[in-house]
Design a protein around this nucleic acid. Structure first.
Lengths: 220, 220
DNA sequence: AGTTGTGAAGGTATTCACAGCG
DNA sequence: CGCTGTGAATACCTTCACAACT
């Protein structure tokens, strides 16, 4: 057994939504049909995904306040369980940004990482000027110091924002320094050694998917 | 018949790669196994995807130079065919950026759109200061002028870069102005009216997918 | 030899339908 | 009866294997 990639993506997103819901003060039990409304995914898909986490979930671990039927999920417990199974526990993963152009430098004070299991620890750029001018909430280094900095901070993930021509070279360097996962913002197709993974994030791909979907409504 | 979403994404990316290859001067015929090397996808997947475009492709439409075996695909013709079928013809789609924070404003001089079927025509932000300070290669407007600007430029796609709290509200506004597709950079889950589509692009989702994949190597 | 194109098989994810529990 | 959890059925995508062509 294991969890399929699409299911894992849904669950990760679900965990974030559950935590947002709690922070907003709505901390009652939540039913799968309510989650359907929040997410737009059919309720049976959500139930199935949750069931795949492994029998673990108490489901109704804690007693409800007194009167209400204790049906549905306890949001905090569910979110915690998802995080545990997907190994997304808090602050577990150190990340770096590679390439501090317009896109890369937009991560320098990126608030959205707060409260996620990911923390930005370092930024790299081959242009020394840039790393002197820019400043963020974490230190910036010239590229040649990767070999030293990445192990020191135990960095496992990288956001790759360099120009397309350098993408594969930068990726190779990162992998050789111990990075195991790359989020590739480049339009280049990267090859990765076994035991590592690349996830592509591309505006152009997204636009392409949109255009294709709308052209012939045949792609769910 | 129709083309599946994953196949469409591969094809769109393939078209870009083919055009890059041509620009780099390598304009000979290209075989499916060469494409396998370029993309990392198995050659039979590529052949299948191409076959799904519809019997159209000449495959070996033009004669080879004289001597060489005319096997493989003619890159220009193939790329053009993909673009036609996926309705990704040149400059066919007008886009706008909504929300000019760090991320949104990184699109203001975004070179990567050159040579794609997508063109940025306008930017919007509710903060009037920002649209006066920033400047890009296309005009910027305050949000309240959407109703007028979007139809005028015939804008069909939007890159949504506003804070999560405003995401659904902005999306509703965009759809009501005639936008049919949104690339959602927000962590919010958007609901969209029929006939429209949303594609999510999220660093956090990508990192989550990476972490999950590496945690138990069970997700291809 | 080499190649593409495609029906058929195989594997995966989604959807259904219902058992089981509060 | 509400709801969750899950085996079974369906639909989908990928992979294989081979026919057809150069």
């Amino acid at each position: 057994m294991g969890i399929s990639k699409p299911a894992a993506e849904r669950l990760a997103r679900l965990a974030r939504l559950l935590e947002q819901r709690i922070e907003a003060g709505m901390d009652g039990f939540v039913s799968s049909s309510e989650l359907e409304q929040m997410t737009g995914w059919p309720s049976h898909t959500i139930r199935k995904d949750i069931s795949r986490l492994g029998a673990g979930i108490p489901g109704n671990a804690e007693e409800a306040d007194a009167f209400s039927t204790p049906s549905g999920y306890e949001p905090g417990g569910l979110a915690a369980c998802i995080r545990r199974v997907l190994s997304l526990e808090n602050a577990a993963h150190n990340c770096c940004v590679v390439g501090l152009g317009r896109l890369g430098s937009s991560f320098l004070n990126y608030e959205a990482f707060a409260g996620t299991p990911f923390t930005l620890r370092a930024g790299f750029d081959s242009n020394v000027n840039r790393i002197e001018i820019l400043q963020g909430e974490f230190p910036l280094y010239p590229t040649f110091r990767m070999k030293e900095v990445i192990p020191r901070f135990d960095i496992k993930f990288a956001l790759l924002c360099v120009p397309g021509e350098c993408a594969q070279a930068s990726a190779d360097k990162l992998f050789s320094c111990g990075v195991t996962g790359i989020v590739n913002f480049t339009s280049a197709v990267l090859s990765a050694p076994p035991g590592t993974a690349v996830e592509n994030v591309s505006v152009l791909d997204a636009l392409g998917a949109l255009a294709a979907r709308l052209a012939f409504n045949r792609l769910k």
